[in-house]
Design a binder for these strands. Structure first.
Length: 818
DNA sequence: GAAGTGGATATACC
DNA sequence: ACTGGTATATCCACTTC
């Protein structure tokens, strides 16, 4: 029986039946019912024919290709048919043979059989079935469709698939039609577990919390509780079973956790395996499956498992202040709320009321995760719609992957055949290429400045790429009529005047970003800001993508040209500003700072307009803001201004600190706080006297050993495994010791230590580095000479005050008496 | 044994 | 390995006088 429903695709999967591929798409209808679509699409790849090969010859080749059969271990695969089309490849038209095959997984093997000298390239055999399916059938994630098809009800089709999947309707698709978009909020369930041991599967799972809409629960096999949300079960087996039941009852579209790819989900699975319980969370009754890559990834059939940490890392981390990407810091920054306090103690020592505290802590984690998800969802949704890959993948993609998939899913309108992913030797060759020259950074003159204006180019690199048509497909081997010449230093390179698909697509992204930025200026919510930022990120990543060795559309010349033209344009803007009588203070990549002087804000606005009217293409210079004061300092051990280090006082009274030790987490808290206070005092008062008093107080405190150890801890992240270090800095020495103590240390571990006094006169810093709890008093000399003073030195140097004399107790030259 | 230098390492800026 | 280059600054390990 044929029926038509409204449908929004959420989760994509595929299966093989009688050697063919079928898509299994789970989503909702407009009444909120769960629906699973069964559908398929043509599976094919391309053989691009060399120029000048006759049609007769092409036909002959098609005939041979038609005969190809590949015997695999599991199945036999063969070519179904061939067609000849006119297609573009890197913007150029070719004759191309479309080769239809039985199974997507065998496309590569069949492509390997095609070795005719008339064939110039074989392409698109390296795409996943899901990607192909979305492109072919235009069933894009998180968009609404009208689906016509046959409802499978106790049908024997596909081996009785409809009886083995827990949805309200299973529909075999006949027709897909895009329809009016209606608002959609996914049904979300957040979860979090607490365990006995940190190592995956080593300890017992003590409890698991679940938070959804009007739903909260903690399931535990430990002590019973009067708390309403706590449900006590007999043992761990039952806990796992009950967890699965609760998830099923709630029926989420999305199951979300924080670091759940790396901890919660694999832990649950490992315990289930150990206790011989089936963790059948999948709608088809299957257990979560894990893919081991750089990081582990856990997939559940039919619902989307989202590990919030992965998406936050890629999309937000650069815009966040948090020093760690842990749930506590991230929730505090994005939600203004922290985790509950809870000190981990051995389970056997937890008694009475302590359990209730633990349950509350566990629940809070899920609550924070749930609310973080709500906060981030608009962006995740937006990215998924734009990139057009399943939510599961988009929430985990790296920036380059997001850019690349955006390109791949938008190539159809250019009639383009998709370029292949580079293979190993190609990647090696690209990585071996020399670095090209990057951004321009202005050498500042140290000093305290008043009334500073900041301009910045909106999405500068992106707008350069669009304005000058820089990309792999527009890159030319030689100069042609109307081509753009770019001097990249080592050579001159040329780009076509016809716009490539890459710059065109990038233009769309930049337009979208502008739209959100405008909305944000009218309605300054965090969310709109984040959204505008995420598109800015995508636009900026497009440039990095061009120079990334793993990119399908890698083009070093285009990347180098982008940087070269950006340098040229910002230098032009700088001299334009100077010509109007302003003094430039600083500039880095896409921003310019100068002194307002006696001019008015209107003058500045007019000047900006003038510069904008001369900018090429879509390039745009924007007013970032006015600042009351700003300070630039000298580079340590040099007598010139340090780049990428300055502090500003905004008109709103807020300070903005860049590059200083204050913002570096590998400096101790005391040095950072001291510096931050000093900068604040100097910027707000315009003089250094108060700040110097403050510094003296801090020094006295350090000398008297009145500083808490907590403020003296240094934090450094391991970027490799302990054994792989050639040089052992303090954090490596400490990490090695931690490892000997049986603690888990590896890539990404934040090593915390302080420097203690030593009897040995010339012991290295590393030899004096101690963990909390290790014996030793903090080294007064080290903290003064290597932390507090260096952090203050360059700032006071601006006022000709030498703070180094402070620790000897000498009087100041530059200040006189006070 | 002090001083200087280059490499390794981490982190920030845009 | 999972966007790019530019820049500061530390500590270690080595060389030099």
């Amino acid at each position: 029986m044929e029926s038509t429903i409204k449908f929004i695709p959420i989760d994509y999967d595929y299966f093989d039946f009688e050697g063919r591929n079928y898509a299994k798409v789970v989503g909702r209808d407009d009444k909120g019912k769960k629906v699973c679509l069964i559908d398929n699409c043509d599976v094919y790849f391309w053989a691009i024919v060399n120029e000048g090969v006759s049609e007769k010859k092409i036909k002959g080749i098609c005939g041979k290709i038609d005969q190809i059969v590949v015997d695999g271990k599991v199945r036999q695969s063969n070519v179904l048919k061939t067609e000849v089309h006119n297609k573009n490849f890197l913007g150029k038209e070719y004759r191309a043979i479309k080769i239809f095959v039985t199974n997507s997984k065998d496309a590569h093997n069949i492509a390997d059989e095609i070795g005719f000298k008339e064939i110039f390239k074989r392409r698109e055999y390296d795409l996943s079935y899901i990607t192909k399916y979305i492109i072919e059938r235009k069933l894009k994630p998180l968009n609404w469709y009208e689906i016509t098809g046959e409802i499978l009800n106790n049908s024997m089709e596909f081996g009785g698939i409809d009886q083995n999947i827990e949805v309200d309707t299973v529909l075999k698709v006949n027709k897909i039609k895009e329809t009016k978009q209606i608002p959609y909020s996914p049904r979300v369930l957040a979860f979090d577990i607490e365990t006995d041991a940190f190592e995956i599967g080593e300890g017992e799972i003590l409890m698991v919390s679940l938070v959804g809409e009007n739903f909260k629960k903690v399931i535990t096999c430990k002590q019973d509780s009067k708390l309403k949300y706590v449900e006590k079960v007999e043992d761990e087996e039952e806990l796992l079973e009950r967890f699965v039941e609760c998830v099923k009852e709630y029926g989420p579209d999305i199951l979300t956790g924080y670091y759940s790819d790396g901890f919660d989900l694999p832990y649950l699975r490992a315990r289930a395996d150990k206790l011989r319980v089936k963790l059948s969370l999948g709608l088809d009754g299957s257990q979560p499956k894990f893919r081991r890559g750089n990081v582990m990834t856990g997939k559940i059939n039919g619902l989307v498992h989202v590990d919030l940490l992965r998406f936050i890392r890629v999309v937000y981390s650069q815009y966040m202040q948090s020093e760690t990407m842990g749930l506590n810091d991230v929730a505090y920054e994005l939600l203004g709320e922290e985790k509950d306090d809870w000190e981990f103690i051995p389970t056997k020592d937890i008694r009475g009321k302590k359990w209730d505290e633990f349950y509350g802590y566990n629940l809070k984690d899920s609550e924070l995760t749930y609310r973080l998800f709500e906060k981030i969802w608009p962006d995740m949704q937006e990215f998924t719609r734009v990139v057009q890959e399943p939510l599961f993948d988009v929430s985990r993609y790296s920036m380059s992957n997001l850019v690349e998939n955006y390109i791949m899913h938008n190539l159809e309108e250019y009639n383009e055949i998709i370029e292949k992913k580079p293979v190993n030797d190609m990647i090696g060759a690209r990585r071996a290429e020399e670095k090209y020259e990057g951004a321009f950074v202005f050498q500042p003159i140290p000093g305290l400045y008043e009334n500073i204006v900041f301009f910045d180019f909106t999405s500068m690199y992106g707008s350069v790429i669009v304005s000058f048509n820089l990309s792999r497909e527009s890159y030319l081997n030689k100069k042609t009529k109307g081509s753009t010449e770019v001097d990249i230093g080592e050579s001159k390179v040329y780009f076509d005047k016809d716009t490539g698909f890459f710059p065109k697509m990038l233009n769309d992204i930049i337009e979208t970003r502008k739209k959100y930025k405008k909305e944000y200026s009218k309605d300054p919510t965090n969310l709109l800001k984040a959204r505008s930022n995420s598109f800015k990120l995508l636009a900026n990543a497009a440039y990095g993508y061009l120079g990334y060795f793993g990119a399908r559309y890698y083009c070093r010349e285009a990347a180098a040209s982008t940087a070269a033209l950006a340098r040229k344009e910002i230098k032009k803007a700088i001299s334009g500003i100077e010509k109007k009588g302003y003094k430039i203070v600083y500039s880095d990549t896409d921003s310019i700072a100068f002194l307002k002087g006696k001019k008015t804000k209107e003058d500045v606005g007019d000047m900006l307009k003038g510069i904008n009217s001369d900018l090429p293409g879509i390039m745009e210079l924007d007013l970032e803001g006015f600042f009351k004061r700003g300070i630039w300092v000298t580079k340590r051990g040099g007598d010139f201004g340090a780049k990428k280090k300055y502090a500003l006082l905004g008109e709103d009274g807020k300070t903005k600190i860049k590059g200083f030790e204050t913002v570096r987490r590998d400096w101790c808290g005391l040095a950072r706080e001291t510096q931050s206070k000093i900068l604040g005092m100097i910027l707000t008062n315009g003089d250094e006297k108060k700040a110097l008093e403050y510094l003296k107080k801090v020094i006295k405190k350090v000398k008297k050993r009145e500083v808490e150890l907590d403020e003296l801890m240094m934090r450094t992240k391991l970027k490799r495994n302990v054994e792989d270090y050639k040089a052992s800095g303090p954090h490596v020495v400490v990490a090695k010791r931690m490892k000997e103590m049986g603690l888990k240390v590896g890539i990404g571990t934040l090593i915390e230590y302080f420097i203690a006094e030593s009897n040995e006169k010339r012991a290295s810093v590393g030899a004096r580095a101690k963990l909390v709890g290790e014996k030793g008093d903090y080294d007064i000399d080290y903290y003064l000479k290597n932390q507090i003073l260096p952090a203050a030195e360059n700032i006071f140097e601006v006022f000709n005050v030498n703070v180094n004399e402070l620790i000897e107790g000498e009087k100041q030259k530059g200040l006189g008496d006070f």
